[in-house]
Design a protein around this nucleic acid. Sequence first.
DNA 1: AATTTGATGTTCT
DNA 2: GAACATCAAATTA
Length: 199
Amino acid sequence: MLKDTNFHSILPPEFYQQPTLVLAKSLLGCLLVKETSEGIASGFIVETEAYMGPEDRAAHSFGNRRTKRTEVMFGKSGMIYTYVMHTHTLVNVVSGGLDKPEAILIRAVEPYSGLELMHERRGLADFRKLTNGPGKLSKALGITMADYGQPFTKPPLYLATGKKPEHISSGPRIGISNSGEAKDYPWRFWVTDNPFISR
DNA sequence: AATTTGATGTTCT
DNA sequence: GAACATCAAATTA
């Protein structure tokens, strides 16, 4: 379990200026906050995946494919990239800087505040399974396509300081089995032994 | 304009 | 462990 530091300030724009693979690890332990008219819900990030643009067959921006959907990945770091998969919304942090279409998928968070709200949205009693997947956490926190293209540095959706994890593990990414060699790249990071990891 | 395809989650066996 | 739900964006024509 991550320790509650009881104080969380919004991460500055400079935070997102580090290389994607470094940022993916830095994001672990940070607090993801979403404010809505119903209330505030938040959780510590415990699992991320990096998508490395042109070089990465699994990335939407592979080969510099620039479309309406991937447009925000070509913009500044720290923007919000939301994507609808089947019936679920997935959340990414844009990185790499201008004209480098890289992004980091937030795969799992550890519930911190707004537990009642998450429970209501997910309709689940088991709070350990509330946010342990990319589609689950976005539903629990109330993240939608309305957040697409907004910066992570201001409400209603933003990132704040949390607690630095003791240990970080890495391994192959999940759900991209048809992406050729890219499926074996160890670009998935998670907080070692945290109980809120997907799978 | 029509068709294909998932960076998933739930449920059933 | 496999089926399927369900939809918007991308691709094709």
